[in-house]
């Protein structure tokens, strides 16, 4: 029955239990739709045959509805609709709440490719490897415009937005290779932004992951990094990182917590900094900006006043970008943009 309906409706394979559940509702809804539409059509036809016009001067009686008619007209469709909703909405809720033990994969979309990063491990371009029978949670973000992650075989779709994370999850139980489409229009390459989800047997997947970790990233993200500088639509943070490198800040500052000529930038924002004159200062945006413009005004305890001033050398918007970058360097969470999406851990290569 399932197989027959699936083929009749041209639905693709079902690679997860969720897909099978959704399809069952699909059959119900579409069957009702066809019956209702045909029913109305046949009624019209029957009335037409039964009540054809017999003479041009024919008159007709005035027919008014009884209450029962109106109740039926409203009640029948409404009960169907609400029933569909009552089945469909819990399925949607299920899709929105990933199980706790899910494996996380970070998805970055950009014109016009997909990048998948595994926690502490390899990256993949356009091909997502997942184990069969284990829940996988995807944390998705975009580098430029909106894309949408769409795997028909999983009946799964989630928009991928720039500047924030969205999430979705699945538990594919049938090993195989499934098509991945970009479903939100994103420009010239939209229809070429295709990919593949490879569902592997769990032990195969473990072997693949271990192998990939050992040999470094199988697909080094060369493809993702090229053109990065040309991209005008990088977020402020990314611009800040690039600018900081260009202005040579990294000659003296690190971003990984180690001490260099200058203090590290990691976790600097909102930190209470001890100064050489014994006072303390809260490292807010104002202080960060001041440190670039007038480094000698406040010297951090334990460092030499060797930092040159950048007053007049860095235009204000770029200063803002660098400040933004410094603010993003947090060990706990990279909260760049306001997000009502899931709480997530930063991507670390």
């Amino acid at each position: 029955m399932n197989e027959l309906m699936r083929r009749m409706l041209f639905l693709p394979e079902q690679a997860s239990q969720y897909a099978r559940d959704v399809d069952r509702l699909h059959y119900f809804v579409i069957t009702t739709t066809m019956i209702a539409a045909t029913g109305v059509g046949l009624t019209v036809l029957w009335f037409f045959i039964r009540f054809r016009r017999r003479s041009e001067a024919q008159t007709t009686p005035r027919v008014e509805p009884k209450t029962i008619h109106e109740v039926l007209f409203i009640g029948v469709p409404l009960s169907f609709f609400l029933l569909w909703f009552a089945i469909g909405f819990p399925q949607y809720v299920r899709l929105q709440t990933p199980p706790r033990d899910a494996m996380d994969v970070y998805v970055q979309a950009k014109k016009w490719m997909w990048k998948f990063s595994y926690a502490g491990g390899p990256n993949g371009i356009d091909v997502l490897h997942v184990p069969a029978g284990r829940p996988v949670r995807l944390l998705l973000t975009s580098r430029d415009v909106i894309h949408s992650f769409f795997v028909p075989a999983l009946r799964l779709k989630q928009d991928v937005l720039p500047g924030r994370y969205t999430q979705t999850w699945f538990n594919a139980d049938k090993p195989g290779r499934y098509e991945l489409f970009c479903a939100e229009y994103c420009g010239m390459g939209h229809s070429a932004m295709l990919g593949e989800v490879v569902v592997m047997r769990p032990e195969e997947f473990d072997a693949w992951l271990a192998d990939a970790r050992r040999s470094g990233s199988p697909a080094v993200d060369a493809a993702m990094t090229e053109e990065e500088h040309a991209d005008p639509r990088q977020s402020l943070t990314q611009q800040g990182e690039r600018l900081a490198a260009e202005y040579g800040c990294f000659k003296c500052h690190t971003v990984d917590g180690t001490r260099h000529i200058g203090p590290t930038w990691l976790d600097l924002y909102r930190k209470t900094e001890k100064l050489s004159d014994g006072k303390t200062v809260l490292a807010d945006e104002g202080y960060l900006t001041e440190s670039m413009m007038d480094p000698r005004a406040k010297i951090v305890a334990g460092y030499q006043p060797v930092m040159p001033t950048y007053q007049g050398k860095i235009p204000a918007p770029e200063v803002a970008a660098i400040v933004e970058f410094i603010k993003s360097l947090r060990t706990d969470a990279v909260k760049v943009e306001p997000s009502k999406g899931p709480v997530y851990a930063p991507i670390r290569k």
Partner: peptide, 11 residues
């Protein structure tokens, strides 16, 4: 019917 739309959206 929310869950069905996830498959159909933008198709």
């Amino acid at each position: 019917t929310v869950s069905l739309d996830v498959h159909w959206q933008d198709t």
